[in-house]
Design a protein around this nucleic acid. Structure first.
Lengths: 195, 195
DNA sequence: CTATCATTTCAGTAGCGAATGAAAGGCTAA
DNA sequence: TTAGCCTTTCATTCGCTACTGAAATGATAG
């Protein structure tokens, strides 16, 4: 524990400034990834933990994470659990050791698919459902009479456009999600060429 | 002002319950769209104002917005300005009237393109830049010696995967942004068929 | 069973972005 | 110029989310 603060072998065996430089590079990545978390709908700390596990490519225990990111035990515990729930990091048991280690998925495309699937389910599906419901309510409320009120027609048109848009967007997500793992990579490349 | 609280004609001319039902439908949409704002990186109030202007398809002035959404004058003013800055709503002057009206863009695909472009610029570009910088720093720091440290190799591989991913994602955004307006609609439909 | 070590929970706190509302600023018409 | 109307600004307040740290819980070894 004293000798191998982090990065295991590198710290011990390095003969020049490499380890500290490696650490600096990793820290830069972690900071930026944390800022970017919002884009993914993940808070800063969770994104940083994930970045740490991803970029070091080394399983780490709770204490490693706490120490390197300067966060409390409670925070580390909850964030690690949440990341496991998302499915973008995994627990790892080791023979004869009590503490648990965590490692990131290595496939970026798979991580992306997982996150996209979850966000679609949580945020897009309900909105699409609401729009459809609004559309139904509008028809019902209007039944024949006054269906030609300009205001009603305008709202109906807007709802229809939005429903079409959300429907297509949802299908795109579906396509990506359905092709998780690195396969997506190839599909996207082909797609881009065909444009 | 007393007679036409909102929705102009509909309120005055409606002969049955239509106007209030229309209003309810619109309010449902507005509420849900506000919740969804986060997905787009837009706060709740801004999203609600936009939803209001979009779904009613009727230009509204600051007071209309304040009253219908129950927000303060300051909030309305700042949010409307921000939406104008984004470019997803537009100011409208009227002859002989001092107050300004605001209306939403009507093309959903255009709105999407605008938002995507802005978010790419603000959030994805800097991250991609950081990753590239990290990659350079890593090569530099290691120059020949110790370049084969397992920890260094691992981090290098991870950074490369991420860079490739972000690069492709960026290109996809670029493609969408470059095809703003309804043209996108067709492109997406074609794409989905080809999958 | 007990001691030891690790994880989880949760009440309390801190920090930050969003909202308020009143005061200041601009325009337009007369 | 002045009066009236509308918009913008900004110091203050509010409310929410994330974080802490200590106590409770759980697990393993002896």
């Amino acid at each position: 524990m004293t000798a191998t603060t982090d990065d295991g072998a590198a710290v011990v065996r390095g003969v020049n400034g490499v380890p500290s430089n490696l650490r600096k590079v990793q820290d830069d990545f972690i900071r930026k990834w944390g800022e970017m978390g919002q884009v993914w709908g993940i808070n800063r700390t969770m994104a940083e933990i994930h970045a740490l596990l991803y970029v070091t490519a080394t399983p780490q225990c709770t204490d490693d994470v706490m120490e390197r990111l300067h966060i409390s035990r409670g925070n580390a515990s909850m964030s690690l659990r949440a990341l496991c729930d998302w499915g973008i990091i995994r627990r790892q048991h080791r023979r004869g050791e009590r503490r648990e280690y965590f490692e990131s998925l290595s496939d970026v495309w798979e991580m992306f698919s997982i996150i996209a699937a979850e966000r679609k389910r949580r945020e897009m599906d309900p909105v699409l459902e609401t729009i459809k419901q609004c559309r139904r309510d509008l028809d019902e409320a209007v039944l024949g009479k006054a269906a030609n009120e300009p205001a009603v027609i305008a709202t109906r048109e807007r709802l229809d456009s939005m429903e079409e848009f959300m429907g297509l967007t949802n299908k795109i997500f579906q396509t990506f999600i359905g092709n998780a793992k690195s396969g997506l990579n190839k599909i996207v490349k082909v797609l881009l060429k065909s444009l």
